[in-house]
């Protein structure tokens, strides 16, 4: 798939030359290089990787400890006995097991919201990039402006709108606003420009294919890696969504995990047991995203690449 797109793209943008199908090259060069650069390079990468992974490691270590051990034990190493199982047990049983509910909510909000947002953004991006109509410039500008407003500000006016629609404290209050991400539309438009050659569309039109058929088959196929990248970006954005759920959700059992953990964090003063719950909960709540990124690496890499290379 990726290679196919590279080839197609090279037809639209002749100067970019041969593409990068010659993946064997780096390996060949590794064989040629002298040991010194390899050693220096490896040292740099290893040091940076330690910097990047240490906080994650520390979180894992900390989540195996009881609350009052955090300050009194060596933070860089595990203390016996491990409290991880006990901590996990308290996490999943606290307040009637509500953390599980929060995780499921997050999956629902991020999964459904992210998917729907990706689809409609993809359609819009395709239309903005590859179809001729009056108003496409204005639409692109408005969307770019929308992408600039901080969430802290949008949350309250959005709350007012949701109130009028009678959606406060429903799943829709999170799902519907997450449909629109100006940033996702912006990216989709960029992906469409880069991955769909006009010639292909023209050829399809010659074959009397309908516009929607062209959009779904050619557009959908060629934009797929880009759409996966958008999906992941949206899932992360919705998973991190903070102010809006805080304002529009009133029932604890509708909260996403991040907000639920934040509310628990506020109880620490009066009940320190929540400290461990928040710490372990943070770790657990980050796992689905990490797994998702690991599993879908191939796709978002090529997606991001498309965006960056000719963006």
């Amino acid at each position: 798939m990726t290679l196919q797109i590279q080839r197609r793209r090279s037809t639209t943008v002749p100067p970019s030359g041969t593409g990068r199908g010659d993946l064997g090259l780096p390996k060949r060069r590794r064989g040629e290089s002298r040991p010194l650069p390899v050693v220096i390079g490896m040292v740099i990468i290893v040091v940076l990787t330690i910097y990047i992974l240490f906080p994650i490691y520390w979180t894992i270590v900390a989540s195996t400890k009881a609350t009052n051990q955090l300050a009194s034990t060596n933070g860089a190493w595990f203390s016996l006995p491990l409290h991880l199982l006990g901590n996990l047990q308290s996490l999943f049983s606290a307040n009637g097991g509500i953390f599980v509910r929060w995780m499921l909510n997050s999956v629902l909000y991020a999964g459904v919201g992210g998917l729907a947002c990706t689809l409609i953004s993809g359609a819009a991006g395709y239309a903005l990039a590859r179809l001729r109509f009056r108003g496409s410039g204005v639409a692109s500008g408005a969307i770019l402006l929308g992408a600039m407003l901080p969430e802290t500000v949008m949350a309250f006016p959005q709350f007012l709108v949701l109130t009028r629609l009678g959606l406060v404290n429903t799943y829709w209050a999170i799902l519907l606003p997450s449909l629109i991400s100006p940033f996702a539309v912006f990216l989709a438009r960029m992906f469409a420009i880069q991955s769909i050659p006009m010639e292909l569309i023209e050829a399809a039109r010659m074959d009397r294919a309908g516009e929607f058929r062209i959009a779904t088959t050619i557009g959908g196929t060629l934009m797929a890696p880009g759409l996966v990248a958008i999906l992941l970006i949206q899932i992360v954005a919705i998973w991190n969504n903070f102010f809006l759920p805080l304002l529009v959700l009133n029932s604890a059992n509708k909260l996403p995990a991040t907000v639920g953990l934040y509310l628990w964090n506020g109880k620490i003063t009066q009940n320190p047991e929540y400290q461990t719950l928040v710490l372990v909960g943070s770790l657990v709540s980050a796992i689905p995203l990490m797994v998702l990124f690991l599993v879908l690496q191939r796709y978002w890499r090529s997606g991001l690449a498309t965006g960056a290379v000719k963006g």
């Binding site: 609350t67 009052n68 051990q69 009194s72 003063t269 009066q270 009940n271 320190p272 047991e273 400290q275």
Partner: peptide, 12 residues
């Protein structure tokens, strides 16, 4: 009310 924080966080 402050004793809860003390009891829950202090060990040594």
């Amino acid at each position: 009310w402050g004793y809860r924080g003390l009891e829950g966080n202090l060990k040594l």
